[in-house]
Write a protein that binds this DNA or RNA. Structure first.
Length: 280
DNA sequence: AGACGTACCTGACCGC
DNA sequence: TGCGGTCAGGTACGTC
């Protein structure tokens, strides 16, 4: 499910639904997700109130009044939903009962997601967040620093821009979309990209992420935000999942030559327009 | 040190 | 209808 826009959408929904609410009980329906739940998981939450809900990279941070933060990651298929009345579904793993009688349910069929509680003061230095690169929408984001890293990169550009220690938030969908918008072939060696093209690529990454946030994320299969709403950005994909179809721009010659190409890079599907994205 | 494959899991879909 | 194979939005870890 979730790249930056989907996580951002979930965070905004959760913030609306649970900010200021007290957690009166937690139900765990298994002993692990991707990792085992830590000892005392339930006790660390019970009785505290939600101060705020934030996003860092693709992680959801729920800050609590007791000085702890619940870090949650959605993996590929994790989702939160808000319920007024219990309506158990397959793969519901965690339920947070709030004092206003609503329930926040975490559901995750593949269980690649996880949750961990850490002291709020230790969040930035925590195992999961310490190595992360900058946020794309950080006011102080330095294109120059990123370009220096890019020049030292070895492999093709597409897997490189998905590295969370380079720049956070870009996953498999938006990597293809941003490269298309910047007219860069996904197999172009990262270090060969000239400075102006990289600046363009960075701008397109931000643009596509922002457009996706504005559309409420992308719903491929069953993604929904915390309030049960689907995203709509999938209707705006120019290349992702569109192998054999014409690319996002009308009248592109690629339509006559087999359309959008699909290749596998680092075990993931990449999509590109063979007319507009040419190796150099 | 860094790059790569692989593992983690379930479900949907496709061809036979 | 059923079965096997393939693929899926992400991350971490072992092994060169």
């Amino acid at each position: 499910m979730p790249e930056l826009p989907e996580v951002e959408t979930v965070v905004r929904g959760l913030a609306r639904q649970i900010s200021g609410k007290k957690i009166i009980g937690v139900e765990l329906y298994r002993k692990n997700l991707r990792y085992p739940f830590q000892r005392g998981f339930t006790a660390l939450l019970q009785g505290s109130s939600v101060v705020s809900v934030e996003r860092r990279a693709k992680y959801i941070l729920i800050n609590l009044s007791n000085g702890n933060t619940l870090i949650a990651h959605l993996g590929m298929t994790g989702s939160f939903r808000v319920e007024k009345k219990p309506a158990q579904q397959k793969h519901d793993h965690v339920v947070f009962n709030l004092h206003n009688n609503s329930r926040i349910v975490f559901n995750d069929p593949r269980r690649f997601g996880f949750m961990e509680i850490i002291k709020t003061a230790d969040i930035a230095a925590s195992k999961h967040l310490a190595h992360l690169g900058p946020e794309p929408f950080d006011k102080n984001l330095s294109a120059e620093d990123l370009y220096i890293k890019l020049q030292k990169a070895k492999g093709p550009v597409k897997p490189f821009i998905m590295r969370q220690d380079f720049l956070v938030g870009v996953g498999n969908i938006y990597a293809s979309e941003a490269l298309y918008a910047a007219r860069i072939h996904p197999e172009q060696p990262a270090h060969t990209i000239p400075r102006p093209q990289f600046i363009k690529l960075l701008a397109e990454i931000k643009k596509v992420l922002q457009r996706a946030i504005d559309a409420g994320g992308s719903t491929l299969k069953d993604y929904k935000n915390a309030e049960g709403e689907m995203g709509y950005f999938q209707h705006e994909f120019a290349v992702y999942g569109r192998a054999g179809l014409p690319c996002g721009q009308k009248n592109c010659q690629c339509a006559k030559k087999g359309g959008i190409q699909k290749i596998i890079q680092a075990g993931r599907s990449s999509f590109f327009c063979p007319e507009k994205q040419v190796l150099f």
